[in-house]
């Protein structure tokens, strides 16, 4: 059982490696205005349909890397999304291809009614009214919040807020979604719901978190970061199962992988 799942993931890695690159970052470095180095020499390729977990301790640069992938940072080095550089002409296309889930759902839900938040993205894409409504309802249904579409965001629970934020991204039908600590401040039940939802999604997912138990249940490919650098890239077992590596960077081996041995 264990061998077959391992083999399957290996096969998946091989298959995805052959398809087109979703995200390509080469020699990317970034300094904040106060001269602290946030990212140093990042090289990362992510294939379509891949689920990548970015793990690392607090302040490792995970969020900054996601901002870099989202083309929010100004740097000399290019970030390619689906083979496109972020030029002025391309940026609109990139925004449609790449959905961004921010760390705090309160930053992402900025309208007084949930449905207005979900329609915000599709409306900006210039879709027809019918299409906007259709997509938004579909997105809300897929996260299980369709019956709460007229609620005000501050009336939602933390788990619902997170799901709502995901719906705002899904409504734009992006091919790639980056998520910054989607598991934070969720109780175990909401976390399980979120994992179920993520595992149903077919998009390329790039998830940054320091919760290894969570990431082990969602992602195959793991990127370990510490102090602005990529330390290791590998599959779930190689990185998360490596006791020494995990402990060295302030993390732990997920319970799920320990019981496997």
């Amino acid at each position: 059982m264990r061998i077959s799942s391992c083999a399957k993931s290996n096969i998946m890695v091989i298959i995805t490696a052959m398809t087109k690159i979703a995200v390509k970052i080469k020699d990317f470095s970034f300094k904040y205005p106060d001269a602290t180095v946030a990212l140093e020499n990042i090289n990362l390729d992510i294939a379509h349909k891949e689920r990548v977990g970015i793990v690392g301790p607090n302040g490792a640069g995970k969020s900054t890397l996601l901002l870099a992938i989202g083309n929010f940072l100004k740097s000399q080095a290019p970030v390619e999304i689906d083979g496109m550089l972020s030029t002025k002409d391309n940026i609109k296309k990139i925004r449609q291809k790449l959905g961004v889930l921010f760390q705090n759902p309160n930053d992402q839900l900025f309208m007084p009614r949930l449905f207005d938040d979900v329609t915000f993205g599709p409306l900006n894409m210039g879709l027809s009214k019918e299409e906007v409504i259709l997509r938004s309802k579909e997105a809300l249904r897929s996260v299980g919040l369709l019956d709460k579409k007229d609620k005000q965001p501050h009336h939602l629970s933390a788990g619902e807020k997170r799901a709502a934020a995901i719906a705002t991204v899904l409504a734009m039908k992006p091919e790639i979604i980056t998520m910054d600590e989607p598991d934070s401040s969720l109780d175990p039940r909401s976390q399980n719901k979120l994992i179920e939802l993520l595992n149903q999604m077919s998009q390329t997912l790039i998830i940054a978190t320091c919760n290894v138990n969570f990431i082990a249940r969602v992602c195959n490919k793991i990127v370990l970061m510490d102090s602005g650098k990529i330390i290791a890239i590998g599959n779930r077992k190689e990185i998360l199962g490596n006791q020494e590596l995990m402990n060295k960077h302030g993390l732990e081996v997920p319970a799920q992988l320990i019981s496997d041995d």
């Binding site: 901002l67 989202g70 929010f72 609109k92 925004r95 449609q96 959905g99 961004v100 921010f102 705090n104 930053d107 992402q108 900025f110 207005d116 329609t119 915000f120 993205g121 409306l123 900006n124 894409m125 210039g126 009214k129 906007v132 409504i133 705002t168 991204v169 734009m172």
Partner: peptide, 19 residues
Amino acid sequence: ERVNLAMIARGFDGKIRTL
């Protein structure tokens, strides 16, 4: 500032469209 990023991430370009 973060809300501004979230708006830009969802294709906001200063033009306000409503449903």
